Computed example of a mutant assay.
Amino acid sequence: MHDLSAKTIALLLTFVSLPTFADEVHPLGAGELTGSASIVNKYIYRGGVENDDVALQAGLEYAHPRGFLAGYWGSTLDYDATDDSHHSGFEHDFYLGYGRKINADWSYETKITSYVYQNGGSVYSEDRTEKRRTTGFDVSNSLNYKNLNLGLAVLLADVSYGNAGDVYLSAGYDYALPQDFTLKTAIGASIYNDHGDNAVVQTVKKSTFSEARLGLTKALGNTGVELAFDYVWGGKNRMGESFEDQTVIGLNYSF
């Protein structure tokens, strides 16, 4: 694994240390088990298409009263990370984290996530002289003020889709509307580390706008079910290739 750049380390340490000014903080609440199940017409992640067909997704999380949390999230894919002849796959995300409420308005969370692709292993260059594993790890941090969320994620190891030290910055804001509607907005940008480039992963753009989202959700009473609509403006990837704009429609159930 290549060393993180000085700039990346400074960003990460600054972000993680933001909440430490509070001597007295309060846990996020009583320990509880929560979950979700969704069906969406497509799965878009940071502007890129992970599944251009109907995707089934589900997650489960346990939050301890002292702020520790552990969870899982998974989704069907329309590709196999290591075999181009397969048109289906599955993504498994496992994470451990810690979150606290600073006061009524401010909270934060940090977590480490492992991204595991079913039947994954390694991706090889065309001449098979170089390879990268598909399983990746990142550390992500979020700082929340009321309905505003700021996020920073750093890739921790070289993988088939990125280099250690790649940074993703995001911001999102939710606004409650009448009749149980919620307006959701989000934007994301990537800063790429090219020090680990090889025949599998190459970097042309050092930084890119990744995506912007404008969405609307409608809660269906107290059923835990909501309808969701997102329009996604696509940015570019590390090669400078443009993502297409996308419309994502889904049905989500939370418990």
Rank of each mutant, 00 (worst) to 15 (best):
K42A: 11
D84I: 04
A55I: 03
S142G: 10
A63P: 02
D230Q: 10
M1R: 08
L152C: 04
K131M: 11
K7G: 11
L155I: 12
L13E: 11
I191S: 09
K184V: 07
A171N: 02
Y72K: 04
V154D: 06
V40Y: 14
R133D: 13
A219H: 11
D78A: 03
G47F: 01
T247W: 11
F229M: 14
S75H: 01
D105M: 07
A10W: 00
D52A: 12
E32Q: 14
V248Q: 11
E211H: 13
S142P: 00
T182L: 15
L13M: 10
D93C: 07
A153E: 10
D194I: 00
G48A: 14
S114P: 01
A186D: 03
S140F: 05
H26R: 15
G48T: 13
E130T: 08
I112L: 14
S75D: 02
A81Y: 05
G48Q: 15
K236G: 07
T223S: 15
F90C: 06
S75F: 02
R66V: 15
P65S: 15
K206N: 15
L69Q: 12
D80I: 03
S38F: 05
L227Y: 07
E91H: 07
G215A: 12
S122W: 07
Y175S: 12
I39S: 01
D127F: 08
L12Y: 11
G240Y: 05
F15Y: 09
D180A: 15
D230F: 09
P65T: 12
V225N: 05
N51I: 06
H87C: 05
A58R: 06
R100A: 12
F94N: 08
L150S: 03
P65R: 12
Y62I: 07
S122P: 00
D80S: 11
I191D: 11
F137N: 12
D166H: 01
G234F: 04
Y168A: 11
L12T: 05
S254T: 13
T182I: 13
T217M: 13
T129H: 13
D3Y: 09
S254E: 07
E24C: 07
L18K: 06
V167P: 00
G151L: 02
N141K: 03
K7N: 12
A37G: 10
E130Y: 04
K101Y: 04
K218M: 06
G196R: 01
A37K: 00
S5A: 09
T20F: 14
K42G: 11
T134I: 07
K146M: 07
